[in-house]
Amino acid sequence: MPIEKIDHELCIGCGICQDSCSLDVIYMDESGKAYARYPEDCVACYSCEKDCPAEAINVSPQRGRPVPHPW
């Protein structure tokens, strides 16, 4: 899955990654930490990782749902 992990220890609960996600993949859990609720919709745009002030997110280049190739 593209969002390999959101490190709960490092996550400061700021919610920026949730705002950075244009595909509504990231939510905050009951403890106020971020988690990938719909990882299959992630397209590895990498915004959450880039915007995270705590370096708690690691995105892999693999997409959640492969798309058909042109040829």
Partner: peptide, 28 residues
């Protein structure tokens, strides 16, 4: 630019500077 260029390639273990890498359509 706001692109995941080199970081993602490194993570995917792809060496764009020395290897031939196959390309496909992005964005239809």
């Amino acid at each position: 630019a706001e692109g995941p260029w080199i970081t993602m390639l490194d993570r995917a273990g792809l060496d764009i500077f020395n290897d031939r890498l196959e390309q496909i359509t992005a964005y239809v």
